[in-house]
Amino acid sequence: MKLLIVDPDPARATLVAEGLADVRPLEIRQTARLEEEELASFQPSIIVIACDSPDRDTLESLRDATSANPRPVVMFVDRSAPGLGEAATRAGVAAYIVDGLQPARVRSILEVAMTRFQLMQQLRTDLAKAQSDLAGRKTVERAKGLLMKERQLTEEEAYSQLRRLAMNSGRSIAAVAADLLIFSGVLKGDKS
């Protein structure tokens, strides 16, 4: 069985391909863009496509058998597993099969793809959080430096002042530190 993964995000496509590698004998190809030549030469029986691929509507239009589209595709919806299609949409992935293919084998493929999309989303969220934590720590350091310089405080005193402000306003230390820098014009001019 031949599977084509269309995803503008190559890292995510690789993650999906890895997840499917040991599922069953599959010949997998991944591409950032749906190319008609590739469809014609590779002749996939299943296409897994990211919902954020601009080529999804192109694929959607290949339902009709015409001279341009000799092998019509249909969106895969498994009525025996209600909710699978919705869950996949939420995860940002859809599967299309070549008309006439028995859908029984497609379900597990869509499930793996969906899980991998969710995993990628989680990784990206974690990364963004790590980056913002790091940025937050830098902001706190700069605010501490500002307090030490302007109010002649020790590092420890500056930090406890920030912590008190945070506790009093019910916000994070990083948020309070960012406000302090904005009001003092440090962030605006980015002079420090």
């Binding site: 919902c51 954020d52 691929s53 601009p54 080529d55 999804r56 509507d57 959607e60 969106m75 299609g85 919705e86 949409t89 939420r90 859809a94």
Partner: peptide, 16 residues
């Protein structure tokens, strides 16, 4: 913002 009409349709169908 989405890049495909099919995704718009499906996200409304799925309640997203």
């Amino acid at each position: 913002r989405e890049v495909s009409w099919a995704t718009i349709r499906d996200k409304v169908a799925a309640g997203v």
